[in-house]
Simulated assay, not measured.
Amino acid sequence: MSETSSTTDLRDHFEISALISGFFRVLDERKFEEGWAGAFFTDDVRTATPVGTAEGADAVRLTEEALGRFKATLHLSSDVIVRRAPGARTADVSWNAHMTHVHLDSTLRARGEGADPLFTVGGVWEAEFWLTGGGWRMSRTLVRPVWTTGEPPVLAAPVSAAGR
């Protein structure tokens, strides 16, 4: 899409930015109550992160599992860019993110004395948003790390729901 949000699209830009902030808050507070993902994702969402790729309910489970690998997290977003053609029900959105993860105590013990408790990522999120009857929802997300500090969690082989 060639057009970016303008003064006539400020409401959409605000709603999408608020959805991103709310999504990050749910991740950090681990508010994974029944149906939580419906406020942020379409039913057929596709996600791609360093932890793996997944679709639909598998994407929600993968998100919950990835956050469970840490004692605490703090996700910060900035520079939200919304591209939406006039009248379109979709928008291409990107934003910068600073994501700090505190390793579980068991992870630190396994790595030995002096292990860094933090794993930090600076990256860019890219997403497709759909305007639904309930408002804007993410239908596709891609997390692209730009830099990291500290040790990432020890992961099993990357998960792909398509390969199940």
Score class of each variant (00 low, 15 high):
R46L: 08
V80A: 11
D105A: 12
E65N: 03
R89W: 00
T73K: 01
P86K: 02
V60S: 01
G56A: 08
A91C: 14
S94K: 06
V51Q: 04
E64S: 03
R83F: 05
N96V: 07
R83S: 14
T49N: 05
P50I: 06
P50H: 11
V51K: 01
T90Q: 15
S94Y: 14
A48T: 15
S77E: 14
R46I: 13
L74F: 12
I81S: 13
L74T: 14
A91H: 10
L62V: 04
D44E: 13
L76S: 08
R84A: 03
L67S: 03
V51A: 13
A54L: 07
V51P: 02
P50C: 08
D92F: 00
R83G: 09
T49L: 08
T90L: 13
V45E: 01
F70V: 08
D44L: 04
D79A: 07
A59K: 11
T47Y: 09
S77T: 14
D92C: 01
R89Q: 05
T100D: 06
H103E: 10
A48D: 15
L62H: 03
W95D: 06
M99A: 06
K71A: 08
H98K: 08
D43H: 06
R84W: 13
A59L: 10
H101D: 10
V45F: 11
